[in-house]
Each structure stands twice: as C-alpha cells, then as structure tokens.
Design a protein around this nucleic acid. Structure first.
Lengths: 250, 250
DNA sequence: GTTTCCAAAATTGTATACAATTTGTATTCA
DNA sequence: TGAATACAAATTGTATACAATTTTGGAAAC
C-alpha cells in the first residue's frame, strides 16, 4: 500500500542550506548590498560549500540575491517601487490564470474545493476572538486559495510563472499578512479580501473572463496597500521579515 | 580608463556546460522524458560533474529540464497548448512592460534608440534580395527591439520577469524565426510584425497606455501563428532546434 | 600625500573522492 | 511460476583538496 501522505523525509543539506540562507538574509544578518562569502555560510550553517553553492544559485534565481561582478553573490535591496512592480507582475499573471480558468472552464469538484477553502477563511473571520494562530491559519488558507486559483488555469506553464513571480520577497499573497497583528485596520482588510475571493470564484463559475480579470488585479492591489500601511508603521516594520532589505525613499 | 565594450573573457566551464547541455537537448540527443545522467554529460562535454550540476539546475529553472523524482533531471516535453500558454505569458508581461512605459514615460533619447532599431529592420526588409544572413540579422534587431521594450518599462523587476518568460523554449520573440526560410509566407509575416513594432512605439510616444497593451498582445500572437505554420510544415520541423521536444497532438 | 606595484590573503571555480541512495538483477524459497 | 530478498551496479549527494582569480594591505616610488 502506497503512502498517500507525502510524508517528508529528513531534508537534504541542500534544502537546509536554502532555508538557512533565506532565513539569515530575511532576519537581516546581512545588509542589502553585502556579499555572502561561501565560507561564512559554511561556518554559520555547518555544512560544506557544495550545498551552499546550490542554494545561492537558487536564491539568485528567486531574486533574493544577486550575482555580483565579477563573482559571488550579494543581498539584494528593494525599493518601494520595485516591490510595487513585483506585486503588479504577480497580479497580472494571476489575472491571466483566472481568465484562462474562466475561458477553459473548471470542473465542479475543483470549484467545490475552492469554495471549501473560502468557507474556512469565513469561519476564521467569524470567530469572535481571533486566537493566537489566527494569522498562521489565515496565511495557510489564503495560500491554498491562490494556489488553487493558479491551478484552475489548467496550465502548468502559468502555475510555474506565478510561483516564480510570487517567490520574490514581498510579492507573494501573504507578503504583509504576518505583521497585520500590529495594524489596527487589519480585520477589515481581511474581510474585504475575502469578499473579493468570493467574487473571483463566482466570476470563474459564471465563465465570465471579462469580469474576473479586473477583479483579480484589484485583489492584488491589497498587497500594495498593505505595503504602504506597513511602511508607515514602525512597530510593524520591526517584526516584518526582510524589513532590512527595503530601501526607504531618499 | 574603464573598458566600454564588455569584451567577453574565455567562458568558464559552467558556461560551457550550460550551452553544451542546452545544445545537446535542443539537437534532440536526448528524447523528452529521458534522464540526463551526470556522468554521461561528463563524457560528452569533457568536464567534471561540478559545473554540469550547476548547469542542470539552471536549465531546470529555465524550464528546459525537469527535476525528476526522486532525483536527477529529465528532458521536458512541450505540448502545443503549453507552447501557446508560454507565448501568452510572455505576451502578457510584454504588454505590462509597454503599458508601464506609456504610463511612466520614456526619455526622448531612449525612444530614438528604439526608432533606430526599427529603421534597421526596415532597411533589412527593403533589400530586394534577402541575403544569407538575413534571418540572423532580423533576429538580432528583433531581439534588440524587444529588449528595449522591456527596458522601457523602467522596471528591473519587469525586465527580469520577461527574460525568464522568454527563456522557455519556443516562447521567445525569435522562437520560430530561424525556420522562416522554409516557409513561403514569411516575408509578409515579417512586414506585418514590423508594422506592429511601429504602432507600439507610436503608442508609447503618445503615452497611450490603453492602446499599447492590446497592440503588444496582438504582436505576441504572431509567435503563435508561426508555431502553427511550423507544425504543419515538415521541412520546417526538421530544421527547428528542439523539434524533438514538441509532443504532437495524440 | 598620493600613486603604483607586489605579495599575501581571501574567495570562488573545478575536480575528485567518498557516502548515501536508488535501481537493476539474479537467486532463493514458497 | 511468482514473489521476496539480497547483492551488485549505477547514480546522485556531500565533502574536500587544489587551482585560478580577485581583493587587500602595505611598502616603495614619485
């Protein structure tokens, strides 16, 4: 009998390197523009250079690092404009995915799965006292909905393009959710996002490609609004992973 | 004094591996779905495993290869639909770039550079007898125009996203240009594309973001038409690099 | 005080040995 | 015959040694 659950084996050194370096950078252990010497990472992570080199290459593809001339990698910094652009790219591709879903049609069972996901978010938002793990659960279901939306396109190519666009720091769906606890208006933002989720799903069910596209683009703009809220809130900035990578306006 | 020309040094083993493996795959030395054992590539390319592994990782990011479970890489195959989707993704991002260029505005000198590039394409198309290097030169200037268009967005993020979308096999601007020599209607296709180039540039100059977006999307569709022409033309298929990766309809 | 040059140190590029894992194959037992 | 198992081969993961390159620091020259 095969194991249906993809139970994860112990992670390889390469995976540990990927997570470890990303964590170091997002924690601000290296400033933006600073080099990441391989030997320093060998010391910090306790493994050989080989998996570290692989991870550096991946993180550069991801956009978190930058290949620096003539050799080596540096931490990349992001201006507010660049983050906005990254959100725009992600939103554009997500709108494409939604349009394709509406045009090509999505199976009833798949639509039901998407609806289930939204039901869970609603249940979460109806709870009178949001618990400590509220944000974590919201992120989980929000991610799931957006992954389903990408899959709904029926195109592996689009799924890949979206995954890459969303892997840039601050460009993903949950980019600024982690610090919403610090921000007063956050609950209302979640509710607005959830209303949009429902409208997007309805438009796909109705095969209304013309309607779903602007809906998704507008939904992506929430991330941009959150960016601005966070930038104005010092408490939020303190607890934002990767805050040190953001170059404030001169 | 700095060297203005980025004269290329002798390529590293890693670069040779990248080009070499891509060439092997595009030449059809490995069938789609087939594994690429590292040691086989060591034999074929005459270098150690280290640069080969780096190249494999890059080619997988690029989309030409696929990480296969539980380990290793295989050659990826592409259905006609997937190629069409890849073109759609590229066109969507190119339209975004053009819209941003129109909205944010582009310097006069930059617009002049784009116009110069189009002048050269026109000169090429006016020649009574297209020479042997006609296609090569067309590709060069066509690539230049599309790179300038991406840059015109003013966004490094968008440039990167576009570069990645265009790196997928058959998704780039020049995807099927190399075999246009085999196709009768090709000269008229080039002329139509050039007319669109001009209209796109005019729309950007006029800051007409609403107009430039559909223009660019329509322009990308030329690649899709070329795909269909090539698929119907056996001679063209024979000389198309990577033809072996295309899964014909069942 | 500034510049130029060279040696030392640091860093990355490459090859290769070894370990761990997966795959293939034969052999044994029911 | 068929399934299970054990062993061998192939393949990838990781560490590390060595080579090539780049950076650094400082002494000497101007």
């Amino acid at each position: 009998m095969a194991q249906p659950i993809p139970l994860q084996k112990d992670p390889s050194q390469a995976e540990r390197a990927l997570l470890g370096i990303r964590d170091l950078v997002l924690r601000g252990e290296f400033r933006s523009g600073e080099r990441l010497p391989e030997l320093a990472l060998v010391e910090l992570l306790g493994m050989s250079r080989t998996p570290i080199r692989a991870a550096l290459q991946k993180l550069a593809e991801e956009g978190l690092l930058e290949a620096s001339q003539p050799t080596g990698y540096t931490v990349r910094g992001f201006s507010e404009t660049e983050i906005a652009d990254a959100i725009e790219v992600r939103g554009t591709l997500e709108a494409l995915a939604a349009r394709m879903a509406a045009e090509r049609g999505v199976s009833t069972s798949f639509l039901a799965a998407m609806s289930d996901c939204l039901d869970r978010i609603e249940a979460l938002l109806k709870r009178p006292k949001p618990g400590r793990d509220f944000l974590a659960q919201y992120c989980q279901f929000n991610t799931q909905f957006h992954e389903l939306l990408a899959e709904a396109s029926g195109s592996e190519i689009v799924v890949r393009a979206l995954a890459r666009a969303g892997s840039l720091p601050f460009a993903g769906h949950n980019a600024f959710v982690s610090v919403q606890g610090e921000i007063p208006a956050s609950l209302e933002i979640f509710r607005a996002a959830q209303r949009q989720h429902r409208e997007i799903l309805e438009a796909i069910e109705a095969r209304s490609s013309a309607r779903v596209e602007p809906l998704v683009k507008e939904h992506a703009r929430i991330a941009y609004k959150n960016l601005q809220l966070v930038l104005q809130n010092n408490e939020a900035m303190k607890s934002l992973p990767g805050a040190s990578l953001i170059r404030r306006r001169p």
